[in-house]
Design a protein around this nucleic acid. Sequence first.
DNA 1: TGCCGATCAATGCAGATGCATCCATATAGA
DNA 2: TCTATATGGATGCATCTGCATTGATCGGCA
Lengths: 145, 145
Amino acid sequence: MSEKLSDAVTKAWVRLVRARHAVVSAVEADAKEAGVLPLEWYDVLWDLERHEEGVRPFELEQRLLFAQYNLSRLIDRMVDAGLVKRMICPTDKRGQMLFITDLGKKQRKASWPHYARAVNTHLGEKLTEAETEKLAALLGKLIER
Amino acid sequence: MSEKLSDAVTKAWVRLVRARHAVVSAVEADAKEAGVLPLEWYDVLWDLERHEEGVRPFELEQRLLFAQYNLSRLIDRMVDAGLVKRMICPTDKRGQMLFITDLGKKQRKASWPHYARAVNTHLGEKLTEAETEKLAALLGKLIER
DNA sequence: TGCCGATCAATGCAGATGCATCCATATAGA
DNA sequence: TCTATATGGATGCATCTGCATTGATCGGCA
């Protein structure tokens, strides 16, 4: 039971954690400086904006990897902030449909250039185009299923 | 100011976040099942174990990317649990030296095989050796200063 | 139709985190 | 040496998260 990890796997594991932390916190720091929406809020709004027909919380949960109780409360806050609208789901009375509001669209749009610039700075500019594609492909394999 | 992100950069960004989340949460779930130390605790103990001469909190902060106030309280908990010992730093009275206790060593050692197995399952087995090395190399470029 | 296990979502409570600030000591410079 | 500034670390407070549980409805099946 005293398993071994190859050096390569150990290194990839450590760096996966470190690199994500480094990039995300740098991006968030830039965003905060610019006074734009938190990343999670942005992600939710972006998903809602691409699904004008409405989104069920559990879908968001799966797509964005939220814990159920966290998402529930995140939505509360976003509703309070006027960025998201909750409606009873017509086909399932347990559930609800979520929609982005006009204010939500406006704020998401205003946040976008800041995130784009930050991601370019902290990720895009550190790799060549080919390397970036390779990285995305490899990370993709870790996500499957 | 309405910057653009290439598709490759966007995809790499999203997958970096998702892949790390998927792998870490799968590993933590396995670890929790086995009733072993939380990942952060493990990381701290491992760092302390490799520096028997003692570690300053701010070093740990830099190496493991902790926020200062989080680390301060994490150490509190670990001291309470008897895994870490705090001593006044002889060369800087503002600071302290941290050491792992025998209990800390024992628990870290007991946790290791579970983490090794989980990391192998959720990362190692999803990539070939060559892919793993390539991934580590690319992630390395994202971390560089 | 009536019942039972599964699913969607909310919530009370304890513990963790972020932010700002504070205290103590160290260090550089006049 | 004396002062100003920087650094190491702790902490009060508000917020967020995790866990377990609850309430409501759904869907399958007898």
